[in-house]
Design a protein around this nucleic acid. Structure first.
Length: 707
RNA sequence: GGGCGGCUAGCUCAGCUGGUUAGAGCACCUCGUUUACACCGAGGGGGUCGGGGGUUCGAAUCCCUCGCCGCCCACCA
């Protein structure tokens, strides 16, 4: 499977790396005679795409999506998709990606949407999808819930404000500290540790919440750490995940003081209403100061959650959302790795995978967006949800339930983008229909992807794939390095540190870029690409080109009846053996995703053995009077070049195809299992290696090297 | 607070399960325009393989420890 790139995306160096490796593997397997499907496609990328189009509308005339209305807006996004979406596919072609473009899919197309609805409905029937009212990570810029994974913890400078809350009976005060003063407007308790001697006397009594002027209880709970600060904690169930849990344990009221934009709502005192959360923060602090209740202001550095797309501070916010019971789906997905049904390459990524899967939280899958798969839930007048694959089915169920025809209203929300991408390995093959593609190409042989989406994507595919198909979605997961900029930061458009692979293709050719990426795809965490390196491999291509030209000039042509085993000249026997050794090493490397190893073997052999020694030593034979030796050398050189081109083809498809066209007639590309295959992979037996010839030529080389 | 990765020539990196004088590309120096290639050829300089211990006949490679750099995960007021 190709990880479907975002429809909004353009090819960056990470895609180039990832797709190059996939292409190498695909071509390699096709050459080995396998029917290798590489299915391309795109992800609708909910938030990202909606953001792009919304920005465009804003720039075009300050129109908001709400002004347009849902249908018009979604139509606009489809227009945008048709026009500018998927630029990346053309770019992939320029890179030489040999995808089967006839099978291209889009996560929002009809078939995939059917699969999404089916999965949703089935999980719901199994009780693994449910609706729940709890705190979510709320992005006030997009006014939508986001999942934990979409939250980025950033360290920022902030303050601890120490506030004094007077006891209700006037007998003293309790000091609490907070980094978010505005939330005190929604406090419903102060908590202390039950064994904290300083507070045992006040447990069960009340403080009067300043500003709001509301009495709230002092409760005993294990949550406060007596070692920290004053040991007393303000409890704001509506705006903090921990406090929410405390509130639940003590049946505290939950007072929400924010609206969808994180402005203060009418649950707060009138002078705060309508204020932005940060303005409110300032005002609360000023009020405490004026009241003489501000005990201390401490500078601090702490982590604050931000939306990964919007970049704004996200708020814990109490809403109704749909959740997947990920812990249940995770169990077989963990087992599949444990028992080796699926393996990670490199293996140590298992640790990361396990760590997350074993501590997995419910997955919030609903988004308050318009671009995406609308949730297949319809509500009756009493709020009862009917979850069915079609509106008609839901209507039928509803009518049955209410005993009469009842109008329903579909859920406004759409699903998290990753919900549909998680189905990609099988939904793209026609599932739930039992298609022949599904039978032939599922599960995927090797998934190649970056570690940045192990949780977002790989884990979800494992969970959903196993649950719905009964088998793992892929046998092997190769985690490639992430391309970063010079400072080690992830390349992103917003940071302006992207490197354009197309520019590199223009400057050095796709082959050189591909070969470089493959050579650098080792198991290290990140890749810092250098132009010099690409230049070096561009020269390598030229070297091969020239060597081929030299052979052609000397009448080296492929002889149909050439038998490498029967050459007699030691030089020829030697190069046949070296070629064989290289073929075996490259084959072994590729079988193991050893892209770097395979390119290195090829580079060394072609440049340092074939060009530097064989061609030089063969010159006298090619120009000499011994006709038999000349003919044998011509045929041998042609044979070696042929093998070289085959071995090199997956990494450098363009130059090899061009040279093939010049040097020999391979015949038209053959169809094999429905896929075009230009040439077979060379399988050379070890018997072609002649130690005696190796030794003999080795001595010659040594002698010349030493002058 | 957990987990993971990196630290090898000026730069970007290979060096897998430990074994001859530690490699490549680029950069640098010297020479070379003899019929594949100056996007080249021949030769050369340059590294106490992050520090310190240990295992071993032998370690860049295994173990321990420390130090930086970076990433991921995590609800600490």
């Amino acid at each position: 499977v190709i990880p479907p790139p975002n429809v909004t995306g353009s090819l960056h160096i990470g895609h180039a790396l990832n797709n190059t490796l996939q292409d190498i593997l695909t071509r390699y397997h096709r050459m080995k005679g396998k029917a290798a499907l590489w299915l391309p496609g795109m992800d609708h990328a909910g938030i990202a795409t909606q953001m792009v189009v919304e920005r465009q509308l804003a720039a075009a005339g300050n129109i908001s999506r709400r002004d347009m209305g849902r249908d018009a807006f979604v139509a606009k996004v489809w227009d945008w998709k048709a026009e500018s979406g998927g630029a990346i596919n053309g770019q992939l072609r320029r890179l030489g990606a040999s995808c089967d473009w006839s099978r291209e899919r889009f996560t929002l197309d009809e078939g995939l949407s059917t699969a999404v609805r089916k999965v949703f409905v089935q999980l719901h029937k199994e009780g693994l999808i449910y609706r729940d009212k709890r705190l979510v990570n709320w992005d006030p810029q997009f006014q939508t819930a986001i999942s934990n994974l979409e939250v980025e913890q950033k360290e920022v400078d902030g303050h601890f404000w120490h506030f004094a809350y007077p006891l209700e009976d006037g007998s003293g005060e309790i000091v609490v500290a907070t980094t978010r003063p505005e939330t005190m407007l929604a406090d419903t308790a102060v908590a202390v540790h039950p064994s904290d001697a300083r507070y045992t006397a006040v447990i069960g009594r009340a403080v009067r919440l300043p500003i709001v002027n509301r009495p709230i209880p002092i409760i005993a709970d294990e949550y406060p750490d007596p070692e920290k600060g004053s040991g007393a904690v303000k409890i704001t169930p509506a705006h903090d995940f921990n406090d929410f849990a405390v509130g639940k344990r003590h049946n505290l009221p939950v007072i929400n003081i924010f609206d969808d934009f994180a402005r203060i709502n009418d649950n707060a005192p009138p002078e705060y209403r309508g204020l932005d959360r940060f303005e409110a923060r300032k005002k609360v602090v000023e009020a405490f100061e004026a009241l003489g209740l501000l005990r201390e202001v401490e500078k601090t550095r702490h982590t604050v959650p931000h939306g990964d797309r919007s970049g704004v501070v996200v708020e814990p916010y109490l809403t109704d959302q749909w959740y997947v019971a990920a812990d249940v789906l995770a169990k077989p997905a963990i087992a599949a790795i444990e028992n080796g049904d699926t393996v990670f390459v490199p293996k140590n990524w298992e640790t990361t995978y396990f760590e997350w899967m074993r501590n997995i939280e419910p997955w919030c899958i609903s988004r308050q967006l318009w671009w995406g798969h609308r949730i297949p839930a319809w509500y009756g007048p009493d709020g009862r949800a009917f979850v069915e694959e079609t509106e008609a089915e839901a209507q039928g169920k509803a009518d049955e339930h209410y005993g009469r025809s009842t109008p329903l209203r579909q859920d406004e929300d759409v699903l998290d983008t990753w919900f549909s991408s998680g189905l990609w390995p099988f939904s793209t093959l026609g599932w739930p229909e039992k298609t022949s593609d599904l039978a032939r190409f599922y599960p995927t042989h090797t998934l190649i992807t970056g570690f940045d989406i192990i949780f977002f994507w790989v884990a979800r595919m494992m969970m959903q794939g196993i649950h719905f198909t009964g088998q793992v979605p892929f046998k092997r997961i190769f985690i490639n390095a992430l391309v970063r900029d010079a400072t080690g930061a992830k390349m992103s458009k917003s940071k302006g540190n992207v490197m354009d692979p197309l520019e590199l293709v223009d400057d050095y050719g796709a082959d050189a870029l591909r070969f470089t990426l493959a050579a650098m795809s080792g198991q290290a965490r990140d890749i810092k690409l250098s132009r010099q390196r690409i230049e070096g491999y561009r020269n390598f291509g030229t070297k091969l080109w020239n060597a081929t030209r030299f052979c052609q000039m000397n009448g080296c042509a492929r002889a149909e009846d050439f038998a490498p085993a029967s050459v007699s000249a030691p030089l020829n026997r030697w190069i046949v053996g070296e070629t064989t050794r290289t073929a075996q090493a490259v084959t072994a490397a590729l079988a193991d995703c050893g892209f770097g190893e395979s390119t290195e073997q090829l580079y060394r052999f072609i440049w340092n053995q074939f060009c530097d020694w064989y061609v030089e030593l063969a010159k006298p034979l090619l120009t000499g009077d011994d006709a038999a030796a000349k003919a044998e050398t011509q045929a041998t050189a042609a044979w070696v070049l042929d093998v070289i081109l085959r071995l090199l083809h997956p990494a450098m498809p363009f130059i090899t195809e061009e040279l093939w066209a010049q040097t020999q007639d391979l015949g038209a590309p053959r169809e094999h299992g429905g896929f075009l295959m230009t040439a077979r992979w060379p399988e050379l037996p070890a018997s072609l290696i002649d130690p005696a010839a190796d030794a003999q030529v080795g001595l010659v080389i040594e002698a010349i090297s030493e002058g």
